[in-house]
Design a protein around this nucleic acid. Structure first.
Lengths: 357, 357
DNA sequence: TACCGCAGAGAAAGCCCTTTCCCGCAGGGA
DNA sequence: TCCCTGCGGGAAAGGGCTTTCTCTGCGGTA
């Protein structure tokens, strides 16, 4: 691999001059030498060793990002926002997938620190796990102590800059919509209960029901992986236990799509027999049939904000930006079916199989 | 930021010893010193500078990957395969999105070379662009000359290791299926014509039609972006020009989903009035309604193979692995509608609007 | 003519680590 | 007693680059 001194030797100049030409330094170099250096670079196909450069330079430029999985549309959208700002500022992004494994998350913080990133963005749900949270905070604090900037997306027990989707209000909107449509037997297909995202969305849902003097019993909730298959499976379990459900809230769109698949398999018409609500409004939501009624989160914008926070000037007080959730009405949520409405308040009548409620 | 010598000083040992302890060197260190070093590391929250390590060590470990867009399901699946093997081997992946921009692709080759990756994987379609291809090959050759390994996924005019999805046969299978179902008025929603993926799939399609003594005129093809919106738009244009189409082949699943959206908007029933075929079999294909009939490519496996090639021992002759395509019959392709079948061979009768054919 | 200042180039000091080489010492064999 | 061996540790040489500092030679001023 050709090095800078190879280039310098070939051009008949010192490494210092070669470096200046290659990096467009402000120090003037005569045109003749410049030409010679450039020629040598081309001939040798020279590419500077990025690690040596990073070592020699003082300022760090790359930004580290930890997401659960970039190929999950939720994070893909956020990442798009992050990228947009980063590219504008000429920053390189290092993106790591934690696959929702706390240990891996911790490791990646170290790794990125080791790679001398200028800033760190945690773009995943927080965990209800004190030991983990403490460890994470220790590492982040240590990192910040050395001048690193940190921002989190979502609720973490971290006391720095943060952008927070309003999950709770989102859950509330979903609940209110379903109540307005007359649903009473509402099942929830939830993500892992250890995630703050799950619990926040649930809390909002509960609040909406509470306003109607009702509650959401645990038996109407099934926790599963936050993906399509998790949603399909949780929906099946929910239906097995409680065939009289008239609505299902999935705590993200991937799960909602899984739910739709299960309902299709079981021959339940959406929304005529049963309504489905998603969450996030990922791009595919409008393309499933029927198109998914869901709660929109400004995902791209969340990424934009987080990156801006971290690359902007540091504020003395940590900044927390809450981004609003919004209900998007499409075709999967409808009024409660007539047959069921008639039985509201009386003993539930099983539509098929045994009622387990 | 704490450095190794900080640790060494605090532990009262030399940097050499500290390094040995931290890296688990084979050289023995007494337990006492080991303890002291470890304690110092913990107290200082020391993390080795990855760039310094890479500079000091001789062997390069990371692998560079250039894809069009990780968040596109096609590449997400391939990446999953790449990751699997890389993780097994303890390799770090650097993934770059070129967004189908040849210049960016070239830049990323340089960038990754600068980052001293041990190998490079190009996981996107090739381009029909001689100037670009030449430049790319120059860069790759230069890289290989310095000991780097290269593998491409898809057809590139690069003479090294490659894994090739059998796009042509895939196109052929799609065409044959449609012919078997009696379709004659077949429209194609194609990706950018500059991509080899597009032309290969088209070629297969043409071959299938040719076997029936028919051909695929250019006016039945619309080229657009290889994504959902491209598919939607191309389908609209196709339908405007030729309302009598009984089948549409989309050259990837994202476009097929866009096509489905347009057809839904126009009130055309799939597959009763018009059939749709996709390509790739990305995960979402089974979740749209009706479920997408498509040509499956072993995407994950393609990633696995490519990474194995590049991390395995170098073979004297470049290895090319062709991975087979396979038709997956679901619900979007059906027999030609009766009304249309009756008019085959005679002057086409417009079903709605003006026939432009 | 003597001196100053400055432009343009090079020498060399890091940046932080790994690893080879070397040294001192203790134990064992002759 | 002397020498050799082997072990645990440190000194120091890179690895490839940037950047400060230093030097040379030239044109311009007093």
């Amino acid at each position: 691999m050709a090095t800078l001194s190879d280039v310098a030797r070939r051009a008949g100049v010192s490494p210092a001059t070669a470096s200046r030409v290659i990096n467009g330094s402000s120090k003037p170099v005569t045109d003749e030498l410049r030409e010679r250096v450039l020629a040598a670079v081309a001939e040798l196909q020279y590419v500077p060793n990025a690690h040596a450069q990073l070592l020699a330079r003082s300022h760090r430029s790359a930004v580290g990002v930890i997401v659960h999985d970039v190929s999950d549309p939720y994070f893909a959208e956020i990442t798009r926002g992050l990228q947009r700002v980063a590219t504008d500022q000429g920053r390189l992004l290092m993106i790591c997938n934690s696959y929702r494994d706390p240990d891996r998350e911790l490791e990646y913080v170290e790794l990125l620190r080791g790679h001398q990133v200028a800033a760190l963005i945690l773009a995943g749900s927080g965990y209800h796990d004190e030991a983990f949270t403490r460890q994470l905070n220790e590492k982040l604090t240590a990192y910040e102590a050395t001048g690193g900037r940190v921002a989190v997306i979502g609720r973490h027990e971290h006391s720095g800059d943060a952008v927070m989707p309003d999950n709770r209000t989102g859950g509330y909107l979903a609940g209110r919509e379903l109540c307005a449509l007359g649903h009473r037997a509402i099942g929830v297909v939830a993500g892992p209960r250890i995630l703050t995202t799950t619990t926040d969305r649930l809390a909002g849902l509960r609040q909406a029901l509470a306003e109607q003097g009702r509650e959401l019993p645990e038996r109407r909730i099934r926790y599963a992986e936050f993906d399509r298959d998790g949603g399909a499976e949780a929906t099946a379990r929910l239906l097995d236990a409680d065939p009289d459900l008239t609505a299902i809230v999935a705590l993200n769109d991937s799960m909602a799509i899984g739910a739709l698949a299960t309902l299709r398999t079981r021959g339940l018409a959406v929304p005529q027999q049963i309504s489905v609500l998603g969450f996030d409004d990922m791009p595919i939501a409008r393309d499933v049939t029927p198109a998914l009624t869901t709660v929109r989160l400004p995902l791209v914008d969340m990424g934009v904000r987080a990156m801006s926070l971290v690359l902007g000037v540091g504020a003395p007080t940590p900044r927390v930006e809450v981004l609003p959730a919004e209900l998007v009405r499409r075709d999967t949520a409808g009024p409660v079916p007539r047959s069921t409405r008639a039985t509201v308040g009386s003993a539930p009548r099983a539509r098929r199989g045994d009622a387990a409620s």
